[in-house]
């Protein structure tokens, strides 16, 4: 017994070292594969307090540019409302027997601010200042004024952590606007303004400068949300699929105000999908 104790004391440094290395490796491996606990993410109580306080201060510095872009988008939206109202008044005659118009609005938006952001890791996340108490649940899509930016991952009471589009483990179902060709968008970890659209059929038609939008095949994003534009084709060894280089529309270095998309049909669609999985 004494020998054992002596042994343990003599080599205690090795045991302590191995213990900490094992914990670190466990966290590293676990975090790269699955969602991990709220307490180990920046959306926990301490993190949200720190980031909220500092973002309140730093937000003052770019109020001018935010104001300007809001006014611009306000003007554009006002214009659109006028146009749509005009169109609506023309179509109202047909509305009585139209099956497409329903009272229920499927997608709803929750506005929030980014309080902590990163772009330099291979798997990036950012934190927002709305959480479970505002109705945000993991799996919801997140967009900013220019396009898609991520998917909600972990939610705290008043904060949530979002998997950024700049995350190599996250893929998005996208398509070339006004065409049926669907592909999978992923980021490759170098330039925060470039992503790649993979698994595009060889015969797909596209032009440089074409807009890439969400496909709407999931409950995360509605169809047709802007993502970026085609920059060109990338050479690959694979002859069956094309890979397109995409310039992202959102500027991830200066994420400010974002909107979380709430799909009213999500539960219904997911439950139908699960029934299919059982069979």
């Amino acid at each position: 017994m004494r020998n054992l104790l002596n042994f343990l004391i003599k080599y205690s440094t090795w045991f302590v070292f191995t213990f900490y290395v094992l914990i670190s490796c466990f966290l590293l491996i676990k975090s790269s594969k699955e969602h991990y606990s709220l307490y180990l993410s920046s959306a926990n109580a301490v993190g949200s307090t720190i980031f909220k306080t500092t973002s309140e201060i730093s937000n003052y510095f770019n109020l001018i540019s935010v104001n300007k872009s809001l006014q611009e988008s306000n003007a554009r939206l006002e214009n659109e409302v006028l146009n749509l109202r005009q169109q609506l008044s023309q179509y109202q005659v047909l509305a009585q027997d139209s099956a497409f118009l329903s009272d229920k609005i499927r997608f709803d938006f929750i506005s929030a601010s980014v309080i902590n952001n990163s772009i330099r890791h291979p798997r990036n996340h950012f934190t927002i200042d709305k959480g479970a108490s505002d109705g945000i649940v993991p799996g919801m899509g997140v967009v900013d004024q220019s396009g898609v930016v991520g998917i909600v991952d972990v939610t705290g009471q008043n904060t949530a952590r979002v998997i950024s589009l700049l995350n190599q483990n996250q893929h998005f179902s996208v398509k070339v606007k006004d065409s049926p060709f669907v592909g999978s968008l992923s980021w490759r970890g170098d330039d925060p303004s470039i992503a790649y659209m993979e698994e595009v059929p060889r015969h797909a038609k596209y032009h440089i400068g074409d807009t890439i939008v969400t496909s709407g095949y999931s409950t995360t994003f509605p169809e047709g949300i802007n993502i970026g534009t085609v920059m060109g084709k990338v050479r690959t060894g694979d002859d069956t699929f094309l890979v397109l280089k995409i310039r992202l529309a959102s500027n991830f270095k200066t994420l400010g105000t974002i909107r979380v998309i709430k799909d009213a049909l999500k539960q219904e669609l997911d439950s139908i999908r699960n029934v299919g999985n059982i069979d």
């Binding site: 670190s24 490796c25 966290l27 590293l28 676990k30 975090s31 180990l40 920046s42 301490v46």
Partner: peptide, 15 residues
């Protein structure tokens, strides 16, 4: 790590 969402990475390097 916890505050920058990279669990285990800095902990391992620091150890």
């Amino acid at each position: 790590d916890i505050l920058s969402d990279t669990p285990g990475l800095n902990a391992l390097s620091c150890t």
